[in-house]
Structures are given as C-alpha cells and as structure tokens.
Amino acid sequence: MPNINNYYERLVVDQLWNMVQKSKEPLTQDFIDDVACLALNRLPSCYVRSIVDKSSYITDQIYQEMENAVTEAIKQAIEQVQLNPRGQRN
C-alpha cells in the first residue's frame, strides 16, 4: 500500500485540536469526528508522500490560503453539525 496522506487532513486535525484546547465546553469525540469529516468533504484533496516535504515546497501565501480554507470549512461544518446534532438524526 502506498504511503500517502491528504495534506488537508493534517491541517484540519491541527485546527480542531487547537479548538478543543481553547474550548470552555467539553466537545464530544462524535462532534469532533463529524466536524472533521464534513470539513474535509468541503476541501480539495492534496495528497502527499511526506507532510514535511509538502510544507517546505509551498509558499507562505499558499499555506495561509490553505489555512483560511480549512478555517472556513470547519466553521461551516460546525454550523451544520449544530443544526443537525447526532442524537437527532434519522
């Protein structure tokens, strides 16, 4: 099996981890997982063999654009999960 990763997964996980650390309310693992999946579905894929290699080949501007896209995707995913919580889904 190839050793590849979606670079956006790392960006989403990092931002969600920071969000969890700063949150005053406990966030369930289901909530975090749902937000991660929905956010990743809103983002393009960016497969890499090494996350470190990818980081060294992109400009600061492109990295910031990717971070901004991740922030927006997470924001929209949170809104979607809050509108349709897991316990209320059919």
Score class of each variant (00 low, 15 high):
I4K: 15
I74P: 04
K24Y: 13
V35L: 00
D14N: 13
E67G: 06
C46R: 00
I32D: 05
M1H: 15
M19T: 02
P44N: 06
E79D: 07
E9S: 11
T71Y: 02
N41R: 11
L38I: 07
Q82K: 03
A73H: 10
N5S: 06
I51E: 02
V52N: 07
L16S: 10
N3G: 11
L43Q: 06
A36H: 11
R42C: 09
Q76C: 04
K54P: 05
S55A: 08
V13P: 03
Q15N: 11
S45G: 08
E67T: 02
V12E: 07
N90T: 10
N90F: 09
R42V: 05
L16C: 02
Q21A: 02
G87H: 10
Q82M: 05
N18M: 13
A73Y: 11
I32Y: 01
Q64I: 06
R10S: 10
D30V: 09
Q88F: 12
A36F: 09
I4D: 00
I58T: 07
I78N: 01
V81D: 04
N3W: 12
N5R: 15
P26E: 12
D14V: 05
S56R: 09
G87C: 14
Q15W: 10
L27M: 08
R49Q: 13
L16T: 03
Q29D: 13
Q21W: 00
L38H: 09
V13T: 08
L27Q: 00
C46I: 02
S55V: 11
C46S: 09
L40W: 01
K22C: 10
A39D: 02
N84V: 07
N6H: 11
V81E: 05
L16Y: 02
P26G: 05
D14P: 04
A36E: 03
S56A: 11
V48S: 05
N68R: 00
V13A: 04
S56G: 06
K24D: 11
R42D: 01
Q29S: 12
E79A: 12
V12I: 13
I4T: 14
N5G: 06
M19V: 12
F31T: 01
Q61T: 14
N3E: 14
D34L: 05
T59W: 04
S23M: 01
P85C: 07
I58Y: 06
K22H: 05
R89N: 04
Q61F: 07
I62G: 00
A36V: 08
V48K: 04
I58F: 07
Q61W: 03
Q82F: 06
V52R: 10
S55M: 12
T59C: 08
K24A: 12
D14R: 13
I58H: 00
M1Q: 15
A73L: 06
L38T: 08
A77M: 06
Q80T: 10
I78Q: 02
N3Q: 14
W17E: 15
V35G: 11
S50E: 07
I58N: 01
A69I: 00
Y7A: 08
Q88V: 08
D34Q: 08
L83G: 06
N18Q: 14
V20I: 14
A39K: 00
L38Q: 04
M66I: 03
P2K: 15
K75M: 04
